[in-house]
């Protein structure tokens, strides 16, 4: 990002600072807007089912709720091409390293939706010996969708929220 320089006494520097500002507003912002808009409606989720919430993702992708209307593509593709990971419920101790591995392989910018009580806090399984109490210890979460399981409408709401977040993303690189 172009940072407006500190204005000092020299006119030249003032000029540069001004040009930076002008460029920022004239090209940077529209460009960023354009790039974010492009990302917005073609979210490509990773096909990673972690537990029972995946049934509701299936229902949401089905013909009744059809999340493709909201710009989420079908969850079939290479990890490298994916930019969204919906963690569908419980993450167990066995799955946790794999989840991290999958997240690390995705290209920036990337977003995470934690779906279901399990992936937020452990949910019903708070006293289980094999369940992580929330996934935010291993990967950063953008949107939490509560419920056990969340209804398909709730998931759609979560995706719309995420799109709002992407629209307002301040930088081009995503981080």
């Amino acid at each position: 990002m172009v940072v407006a320089q500190q204005q000092k006494a020299g006119t030249f520097q003032v000029l540069v600072g001004k040009i930076d500002d002008v460029l920022q507003y004239a090209i940077g912002d529209p460009l960023r807007y354009l790039a974010n808009w492009g990302r917005l409606y073609s979210l490509w989720p990773v096909h990673l089912e972690t537990a029972c919430c995946s049934v509701e993702v299936g229902a949401a992708a089905g013909s009744r709720f059809d999340i493709e209307r909201f710009g989420t593509l079908e969850a079939f593709g290479s990890l490298r091409a994916c930019d969204l990971i919906i963690v569908m419920g419980t993450v167990t101790r066995k799955l946790a390293p794999r989840l991290k591995l999958i997240y690390d392989q995705m290209a920036e910018p990337k977003w995470v939706i934690a779906m279901g009580a399990c992936s937020i806090t452990g949910g019903l399984y708070f006293d289980s010996y094999n369940v992580l109490r929330g996934i935010d210890d291993i990967i950063p979460v953008d949107v939490y969708v509560p419920g056990c399981p969340p209804r398909a409408e709730a998931l759609i709401q979560g995706i719309v929220l995420l799109q709002e977040k992407i629209r307002r993303m301040p930088t081009l690189s995503g981080r």
Binding site: D127, S128, Y129
Partner: peptide, 8 residues
């Protein structure tokens, strides 16, 4: 039975 789940 002597294993206690960490959440308990």
């Amino acid at each position: 039975k002597d294993y206690v789940s960490p959440g308990r």
